[in-house]
């Protein structure tokens, strides 16, 4: 089942954020989306997940049109995501953060859970077993009854991925999963993400960390000013002069990338201070 972008366009007023992007994402592969800040990478993720509306064009998963559906319907059709700024349910336990993902399956029988305790117990046990599996995959079991918001930053990143993974989605959207992680954590993340590759799963990673992208991805899309500049294997991307010129080549852009990185560090510093304060 492929995920297909058909002539996607996103416009804010007269400002075009995504301009006529068409692409095909195949199961079993890890796709990277790169590009300088403001190129429209996150917008693509947010449109796919239904957080942003699509101005024109379509998004299809297999034969099913995804664009235009509500967020929870998109999630229900097997598309899971993480966020650029971690968005966990801070004052819920780690376990509950995952368990709530089963709402779509179990909500219809919630009344039975209330009225018939044995049923509630067995359903809960089944859900917990699944959640534990996903948590174990990310070595999060020691934190299982902690509040998600009290976890260290790196663990919160992992938990967010575990939450996206718990219902075995066919599409996994990762929006800058390495943002704010240190070297060791990024290495850990790379290894864990590699292990998530599965024949039925489309993985899409938006990331600034080129080492991670080049090491992990099978296909890479290069975005520039809302347009799809180039797509190919990591080797092709690295060898393409157009990409080098537009994205990596000119000294201007390198400065842009550097300042973007600095920007992010500044933001993270701010965040850390807010947290401690």
């Amino acid at each position: 089942m492929n995920l297909v972008f058909e002539n996607l366009r996103k416009q804010y007023g007269s400002n075009v954020a995504i301009d006529d992007v068409s692409a095909v994402f195949e199961p079993g592969l890890i796709h990277g989306i790169i590009g300088p800040n403001g190129a429209g990478k996150s917008t693509l993720i947010n449109m796919t997940a239904g957080s942003y509306t699509v101005t024109s064009g379509r998004i299809l998963l297999g034969d099913r049109q995804i664009s235009g559906l509500k967020k929870y319907q998109i999630a229900g059709s097997g598309i899971a995501r993480t966020y650029q700024n971690i968005r966990l349910f801070d004052q819920m336990t780690v376990l509950d953060n995952l368990e709530v993902c089963y709402y779509a399956d179990d909500a219809g029988l919630a009344w039975k859970e209330v009225l018939w305790p044995p049923y509630a117990k067995s359903r809960e046990a089944e859900r917990h077993a699944q959640c534990r599996k996903a948590l174990a995959q990310f070595d999060l079991l020691p934190w299982i009854s902690e509040d998600a918001g009290s976890l260290p930053y790196g663990r919160q990143r992992m938990l967010e991925i575990a939450r996206a993974l718990v219902r075995d989605p066919s599409v996994l959207l990762l929006d800058e999963p390495a943002a704010g992680l240190n070297h060791a954590e990024t290495a850990e993340l790379t290894a864990r993400l590699r292990a998530l590759r599965a024949p039925h799963r489309i993985m899409i990673i938006v990331e600034h960390d080129m080492d991670l992208v080049m090491a992990l991805c099978d296909r890479i899309l290069v975005m520039h000013h809302g347009k799809l500049l180039f797509q190919g294997t990591p080797a092709e991307v690295q060898g393409n002069t157009e990409v080098q010129q537009a994205y990596l080549g000119t000294s201007n852009d390198i400065d842009e990338i550097k300042s973007a990185a600095q920007d992010r560090r500044a933001k993270l510093g701010l965040r850390a201070r807010q947290r401690s304060g």
Binding site: A49, S51, K70, K71, Y72, A75, G76, A80, R81, Y83, R87, L88, F89, D90, Q91, M92, V100, C101, Y103, A104, R163, R167
Partner: peptide, 11 residues
Amino acid sequence: EDQDAAAGVGV
């Protein structure tokens, strides 16, 4: 906790 993230996990 986070209404948008809740919708994002299928609620």
